[in-house]
């Protein structure tokens, strides 16, 4: 009896989560897959016809936006690594007793809604707003200078909005480093820079790896930043999909584009994990 129960316990534990995922992830995904292969229109209804044309149309009409999304996502991710690593490093090694306060401060802006934060960036960056207005008044910037509606605004917004998802995993990896290992490096003739390069950096890579996964994927498929901070030349694939669903109501194309994006991101993640997610990379980095 108890053996049967012991055998069933793991399944009982995953049951609620499994049902949740089945209803809210698997079912919609299957519906979307089916929809992407249907043809018709909203007025007359859609019929399943193995219509691959939506994929072909999606890729021919919107490959610019797909590439742009991946480039923006990548750029935002790189910026986050550059900004986030020193922050994570500082909190982990110099934070002392106040580590949790600093982490809280890092997360504090994220108690405000995502959209609201992006809109406040729009306000800050507007052509004659708080930032650019005074600079133009004193003649430091030309009158027609603008940030809004440029790729810089969109990439900046993406980098800002997903920053904690980069910093937190890096912090966790850095925090786990045994200070005695750093002393050992110091004892073995490595100065501060060599200790960082040979020990701290390689040991933090799993955190950077996780951070990249957690920021690149949502940044590449985001549409809020591009629609609030961007212009017509910065449209990302997220905006196209949203437009296809809500405005054009071309559900098959929207679904096909979603699937294409998902497939591309999955391929990217697998390639990335294969290249960087193994322990051999750490050994190479340690040389």
């Amino acid at each position: 009896m108890s053996r049967v129960r012991a055998a069933l316990t793991p399944y009982a534990l995953i049951f609620p989560g499994g049902v949740w995922l089945a209803i809210f992830f698997v079912v919609p995904t299957v519906v979307m897959l089916s929809l992407s292969l249907q043809s018709g229109n909203v007025a007359d209804g859609f019929v399943f016809t193995w219509n691959w044309q939506s994929y072909v149309d999606g890729l021919t009409n919107y490959h610019d936006q797909i590439i742009r999304s991946l480039v923006y996502g990548l750029a935002a991710t790189v910026i986050q690594i550059i900004i986030g690593f020193p922050v994570a490093y500082w909190i982990a090694f110099k934070g002392g007793r106040h580590k949790s306060i600093y982490l809280f401060l890092l997360l504090l802006p994220f108690l405000v809604s995502f959209v609201l934060r992006t809109i406040s960036w729009q306000f800050l960056l507007s052509d004659n707003g708080m930032l650019l207005g005074p600079l133009k008044n004193i003649g430091l910037l030309p009158d027609d200078f603008r940030i809004l509606a440029t790729p810089y605004a969109v990439i900046g917004g993406l980098a800002y909005n997903f920053l904690p998802f980069m910093v937190l995993p890096m912090y966790v990896a850095l925090e786990r480093i045994d200070p005695r290992v750093l002393e050992a490096a110091n004892d073995l003739y490595a100065g501060k820079f060599q200790t960082f390069l040979r020990v701290v950096l390689p040991l933090s890579l799993p955190g950077v790896f996780a951070g990249v996964l957690m920021t690149f994927v949502p940044a590449s498929s985001d549409y809020v930043n591009a629609s609030v901070l961007g212009g017509t030349s910065t449209t990302m694939i997220g905006n196209v999909i949203q437009n296809q669903y809500l405005v054009t109501q071309d559900y098959p194309t929207a679904s096909a584009l979603s699937f294409t994006l998902m497939a591309l991101l999955l391929l990217g993640i697998f390639a990335y994990a294969k290249a960087l997610g193994t322990e051999d990379v750490l050994e190479v980095a340690a040389r």
Binding site: R180, V199, E279, A285, A286
Partner: peptide
């Protein structure tokens, strides 16, 4: 130095 918990480089 040989450290108490060895402090070997785990990577």
């Amino acid at each position: 130095m040989v450290f108490q918990s060895y402090a070997l480089f785990p990577h």
